[in-house]
Structures are given as C-alpha cells and as structure tokens.
Computed example of a mutant assay.
Amino acid sequence: MQLVVGRIGRAHGIKGEVTVEVRTDEPELRLGPGAVLTTDPASAGPLTIASGRVHSGRLLLRFEGVADRTGAEALRNTLLIADVDPEELPEGEDEYYDHQLMDLDVVLADGTEVGRITEISHLASQDLFIVEREDGTEVMIPFVEEIVTEIDLENQRAVIDPPPGLIDDRAEIASSRDADEADEGGADDSDDDADEKDAR
C-alpha cells in the first residue's frame, strides 16, 4: 500500500536541502536516511534520502543526486510516497496509520451517525479528522482522547464525544459575522477547552 508521508517545500541553502511538510506520525522511520520514496509526479522520483535534520522546527532533507539549490527547487510541491505493508501496525498503543482511519464511520456514543472520515490533517499541535456529512458539508474533529473515545477498526467506526458547538448548529452560528456576542463567547470557550485538553 502506498501512503503519502510528506510534501517537499522550498529549497534551503545552496547544497540541495529542501524543507518537508511531514505527513506521517513516524518521520524517523519513513523519512530517515536511506529511505527510498516514490513521488507524485512520478517523473520526480524515485528519491533516496541522503540525510535529514531539524532546523527551526522544520524537517530538512537532502536527496541523493540533488546537490544544489536549482535541483532542490525543481522538487518543490512533490509528494513523497512510501510503500507500507497494509498489515503493518504502529508500534505504540492506540496509534494508527492514516489508511486505517480513512473511511471510518464517525458516530456519537448513542450510535447517531455524524459522517465519514475523508481526510486526516496532521498539524503541529494535533491531528484532525476531516469528516464529511451526508449533506456534503465537512466538520473537523480533533483526534484527542477526550473527544475521540474509541477507534473500532473491526466495525469500521470512530466513536466521539464532542464538546458543545463542535458538530452542532451552534458552531455555524458562532462562525458567522452576524452572530451575537453571547454565541461567539460560547464558541470561544469551547475552543479554549479543546486546546487545553489537547495540551495535556
């Protein structure tokens, strides 16, 4: 199975290094020296990682055969793809690969259907489930223990206990410029609570 594990950004310096937007929870494994990655577009690869380091909080990679800024800049926006055994599981408990979570049904504890996971967004602070509802709208669910209470791979579902305003109509009202201050204050409190839980 092929998984996108990163996207190449701008060139860094003059020796062929590039910044990389990491899209895997295991960068040491997927983006370590010696790893061979296919690419999208395919014409840019395959690429073999020669070295890697973290600079100012960002991952920098250098690929074999790319020795200058011109070559590095030519790779900008290229997706890095790793071949992963579909039966392989992460080493940590309660950790999952993106492909295990994609297309899971998202439901409340009482079984009420919320939607289906169509994308997983890896942010610096936390991961987010992008959930598509039946009406075609999308809602973002922070992948934190306080909200996502169960991942049931056998039954292909994720059970959530969302705070007020995360998935109901109040979230839409609070985001409107015409919302009154009381509604906005309620939504802001919910957001603050979610941030605090994630920080722990």
Rank of each mutant, 00 (worst) to 15 (best):
I120M: 14
D103E: 12
G32Y: 01
A179M: 08
R23Q: 09
L123S: 10
R58N: 05
R30A: 13
Q2A: 09
E87R: 13
G9S: 10
P163R: 05
R76Q: 15
H122G: 03
R30S: 08
A35W: 01
E73L: 14
I120R: 13
L108S: 04
D195Q: 12
L153F: 00
F143R: 13
T38P: 01
A171E: 06
F129H: 12
G165C: 09
K197W: 14
R10W: 02
F129M: 13
L153A: 04
L153C: 02
V22D: 04
L101H: 03
P142V: 03
D83M: 09
A35T: 11
I120W: 05
F143K: 08
P27N: 11
R200M: 10
V5P: 00
L104P: 01
E134A: 15
E146F: 04
L61M: 08
E138D: 11
P33E: 01
H12V: 15
D110W: 08
E64G: 10
V18W: 00
E145V: 09
N77R: 15
P162W: 06
P86L: 08
R53N: 04
E21H: 13
D161S: 13
V107H: 04
E93G: 03
E154G: 00
G45A: 09
A82V: 06
L123R: 10
V5A: 01
L60P: 02
E73M: 09
G6P: 02
P86W: 06
G34F: 07
L29E: 13
S51Y: 02
S175Q: 14
R116C: 06
A44T: 11
K15Q: 11
G45Y: 10
G9E: 10
D25A: 12
A72E: 03
V148M: 04
V114I: 15
P142H: 04
P41S: 13
G136L: 10
V159H: 07
K197D: 02
N77L: 10
Q2T: 12
I49F: 02
S176V: 04
I49D: 02
A50V: 00
N77H: 14
A42F: 07
E113F: 07
E87Q: 11
V148K: 03
G13C: 06
T48E: 13
A67T: 15
V36R: 15
Q126Y: 14
D40V: 13
